[in-house]
Write a protein that binds this DNA or RNA. Structure first.
Lengths: 250, 250
DNA sequence: CGGATACTTGAGGGTTGTCAAAATATGTGG
DNA sequence: CCACATATTTTGACAACCCTCAAGTATCCG
């Protein structure tokens, strides 16, 4: 699909992502292909934007992993989202200007910087691209709602299982998982704790339970969901909110 | 400002809200004023949209209060947002189509229904209106992030205080509070519990503490923040994420 | 190989939940 | 406008889930 026009691999990641969310015609795709992308390679634990920044460009994650987070007065941290290739973690500040959270890499990563001006000009010319980007932020909102529900009302085990099911789905959509439901995801248990509103110690105990029950295997940065229906059940997971269109994997 | 063109009171609510978020020129405002609004009066506890619905129109809250919520498998409820006049609780499904949560009134309410088709046509003609609506959903996202942080990492008392500070700010922005920081907000303690990820019993205890400390007074549907700096401190509240522009109150 | 980071496990404590019941407020019909 | 039914608030006793502190083990990486 998106291969039908001449695209750099970097532009291709963006085009594929937007195409999976909103139909784009050939002119839309050509316009996207002309976006200026400034490429950068980052190490792990590198800050992409800080809380309160006013960036003048968006950051497209091309390879590697990142997360959004807030740090409280007392030093506690809440991770708000995990980001995978194709995500634009700082897209909200295209219009909100001032960030209300920080974004950091979780692994060595390759990113592309896209000036706000170029993006705004493109949206003005190609409204469907604007709709696609708007939808990206709406899906972010749907994920926030799901996380809020989990942190507010689910048990630690349910939250953990739900996050693993969600992550597997998102990895699959990017062809980043193998058919045994295994994927590379370089998060520490402390980071999972900060995402789930738990402590690292309790995350460790919960993961131990899920492992003993044969739902998941993990080690290093490799995760494998051994019993997918069981995991989905444990997390009461329903992927609808991710709005993943299961288009042709060609 | 928005009074400079001829507007029904209902259109005025929408125009004022969008103007407070994004600059709109006279043509934008005229176009908004031409939107078809179907008015409806609803009782308290009336469902506006159900989880999984595919509405073909958006709902503008004109008077009264509402909330978004999800119900879990086991019957637990998580309230995701409280809505005030000027909000469009089901705006995300303008593009996401299928709702992932329900919306209900908390009090008798007056709402206007706006067909998606009319809204989409307007956005195509008046891109700045589209940007304003996009920003509305981005601010929703910022509030979700703040709530997620609270539920994940703040104590019960901090969460309660934060919610009261947030609500006061939003009421003020709509001129729905008096100068003694009092406002009408018809929520029960059970509803607060469902928003904060707590039980009604514990909300009651926490509210008792805040009352004894002289931070808040309440009774019936009336709330008064007696010590605003103290309340903001107790909730570590900083209003920046609400993106409220303190324009002229004329 | 050595230091640092991450994971694992145990013991004990605290914030919050559960269950229960009384007191108060609210609303509705007569 | 009262009387009753219902919903909401308040309080107490007790339990549970998760946190804190602590120590030991494994793993990563230069």
């Amino acid at each position: 699909m998106s291969a039908s026009i001449d695209l750099s691999p970097e532009h291709d990641i963006l085009v594929r992502r937007l195409m999976s969310i909103n139909g784009l015609d050939a002119a839309d795709r050509r316009a996207l292909a002309a976006l200026p992308l400034a490429l950068r390679d980052l190490p792990a634990d590198a800050e992409i934007v800080g809380d309160g920044d006013r960036p003048s460009a968006c950051t497209l994650l091309l390879e590697g992993f990142a997360c959004r987070y807030k740090v409280l007065e007392d030093g506690q941290r809440q991770i708000l989202a995990f980001h995978l290739p194709g995500d634009v973690p700082d897209l909200p500040c295209l219009h909100l200007h001032r960030t209300d959270h920080a974004v950091t890499t979780l692994s060595p990563a390759r990113v592309a910087t896209i000036p706000h001006a170029a993006l705004l000009e493109l949206i003005a010319r190609r409204p469907q691209v604007g709709v696609a980007l708007w939808k990206v932020t709406l899906i972010d909102g749907a994920i926030y709602r799901e996380w809020l529900t989990g942190v507010g009302r689910r048990t630690a085990k349910g939250r953990m299982a739900h996050l693993l099911s969600e992550t597997l789905c998102r990895m699959e959509a990017l062809a980043l998982s193998d058919d045994g439901h295994g994927f590379e995801w370089p998060v520490t248990q402390a980071e999972l704790a900060d995402a789930l509103g738990l402590t690292a110690v309790h995350v460790n105990r919960i993961l131990g339970e899920l492992r003993r029950e044969g739902l998941v295997a993990f080690g290093g940065r490799t995760w494998t969901v051994l019993d997918r229906p069981g995991m989905d059940r444990a997390g009461a997971f329903d992927a609808a909110y991710l709005h993943i269109s299961h288009a042709d994997p060609s």
